[in-house]
Amino acid sequence: MNAVVAGITYRAVLGRRRVLLLILLPLVLLGLAVLLRAVGSTDERAVVTLMQVYAIGTMLPLLGLIAGTGTIAPEIDDGTIMHLLSKPISRPVIAVTKFAVSASLLAVFAAVPTFVAGYLLLRGEAGIAAGFALGALIGGIAYSAVFLLLGVITRHAVTIGVVYAVVWESLVGGLVPGARNFSIQQWAQTFAGQLTSTDFFKPTVTMGFAVPAVLIVTIGAVVWAGQRLRVLSLTGDE
């Protein structure tokens, strides 16, 4: 971890139009929570739907995509990363720092709003607020690592990330049961399930699979990103 790298990265991600998307997505979650409260639909089933479909199913991967690729892809794209790479700092340290920045952003913009929305609707009932906040936190960490890696290895990180988030996790994960084992969303739900006690929510992936999967994916992706950064060649535009 390097404080200067982290400082520059925070300013790069938060200083541009990117931050609008980072704010908009959790705002919509809170808006929906307020709306559900207003129409008096504060039962566990409705809240679980909100959490599963919106918080974990839509907001988390999108925020992961924006924060994870946003910490490194634009810098590689326009060559500003040279400023960091031409210094006596090991490249894996730079990768780990960028990963930590992205994960912390997801904790703030995804996990906290998830907890607030859940708490707004149910207070502490059935552990739903805390459970899904934990799920969002863990999922955010895994997404940060994966999308950081994508940002390092390809110039089309966002497009590929979109295909992964939309096509793989929603379509394939929804239709092919076996594919659910290989979905960060599903792992996040498994962690959420550890704290919740409601009849309306049953994660499909076991903890015995999800814990090693999250660990392997996160550590593997960050280490790989660091190694790729060591051999990064920067050549021209486009």
Binding site: R18, L21, V28, T58, L62, G70, T159, V162
Partner: peptide, 19 residues
């Protein structure tokens, strides 16, 4: 920025569809 553009368009679609 192309990447941010991709993210913005898909975010709005996913947002609308999820809401």
């Amino acid at each position: 920025r192309r990447g941010l553009g991709v993210a913005a368009v898909i975010a709005v679609y996913l947002l609308a569809s999820a809401i």
